[in-house]
Design a protein around this nucleic acid. Sequence first.
RNA 1: GGCGGCGUAGCCAAGUGGUAAGGCAGGGGACUGCAAAUCCUUCAUCAGCGGUUCGAUUCCGCUCGCCGCCUCCA
Length: 483
Amino acid sequence: MSLRVYNTLTRTKEDFVPLVPGFVRMYCCGPTVYDHAHIGHAKLYVAMDVVVRYLRSSGYSVKYVQNITDVGHLTDDADSGEDKVERRAAAESVDPMELVDKYTNSFFEDMDALKVRRPSIAPRASAHIPEQIQIIQDLINRGSAYEVDGSVYFDVTSAEDYGKLSGRRLEDMEAGARVEVDSNKRHPGDFLLWRKAAPEHILKWPSPWGIGYPGWHIECSAMAKRYLGETFDIHGGGLENMFPHNEDEIAQSEAANCAPFARYWIHVNTLTVGGQKMGKSLGNAIYIKEALGRWSPEAIRFFILSTHYRSVLDVTEEALDAAETGLKSLTTLWRLLNEALAKAEDGEEATDITEAVGHLKGRFRGAMDDDFNTSAAMAALFDFRRELNTALGVKEIPARQSLEAAAKALRDTAGDVLGILKEDSATETDDLAPQLMDVLISTRSALRKAKQFELADRVRTELADVGVELEDRAGETVWRRKS
RNA sequence: GGCGGCGUAGCCAAGUGGUAAGGCAGGGGACUGCAAAUCCUUCAUCAGCGGUUCGAUUCCGCUCGCCGCCUCCA
């Protein structure tokens, strides 16, 4: 079985075949950096991260471009909106680029914390003005765009397949148009490529049409072309950006390049709070930094990945708590496996472990190959956990080779692909702590032997208060720091 | 009004034309001095109503409810 991907463009699940064998070129719309990122962003970028990780683990070399939008994103319809970055910069009394730097850093800080791998390239819109001007010029030359009073618009009627991604038709939209139409537009659906700047505007550049700045959609077309070429494999993004943003990207790129744009479109569904979409403008955003104060990064990933990426995900504290608890048993398995491995010796292969490893590999791959079905993949992981725990429960420690195979399988799936394997902090590197713990544990064992349970329990309780957990197993007591 | 999606146990959530993965919570049991960890076991007929079919949760239609996009939002 090979990878199948749901392509929004065709509304079907298709076999994934990159343009160049073994090499995947991928783009994903990045954030507009005028505020801290919230969990809605986390859902998109964690989902895309897993796509990238899985492609890599499947043997593909992946070039992943994710832009940073720092100019041109307006607060409202093109006619009346302000530039989001400029508005917020004014509110914070800083230079727009200072604001951009601050929130770009904040974004990557959050993504790093969530173990989202950095993109291969993270280009900024403001650093690609010449590329954007070039595409606009090409569009004018080809008759797909027109200039009016220093602003340039894309002529949607010039693209005969306009609306193919979102399934919209110009006639329908015309009928439903509610926003006041810019009188400069020839068609209500036309969108801005370049906007004439007012004198007080800070972020502006010279162009063949005068001083101005680029529209919101053109940046992605320009940066995708610059780093991935005219036609590339995968374009990802949030579902809410399908129209108009992604639709317009396609229209302008294909009109300018006379070549197909992205071949597969992957859209990640929204995240909701109490059934309502999470959005900065809606005032219900839960910031990633806040969430990290309460749940581990792995639990947040676990929570996000427990649903398929094309499904809506509703955030509740209960669900996040459940994710944290569920994750714990996986973390425990990883710890037990490593403890066993530390004591294991060469020996005869443990067939039950070999079998469990086989099941996990097969089911995990099968699930991920089916349009990145992370929830099915996680089910395989939990079944593996049970089988392994049973195998580890026996008297003698299984052979090292078997344990190594199990550890590798777990690291390859839960670790490398899903990124939910917590590195165990149980092994204390400080040399004094283990020695002190040995003293405490042996003392407590003596108390237990003498049936002085009250004192023995006091040791355990007080250690728990300082963050150390004890666990009495057959013949030994182990300790670890609370995770 | 137009386009699209969703409705599976207390909660989260996969999935299939032939009577439903997994996680959390709950019940029962094993192990333990007690815990912890772990294991065993138990817990749904898939919003409602029709239709197609030998058979539908899965296909079609309708109804109800919820959501997204059409204007900025990942």
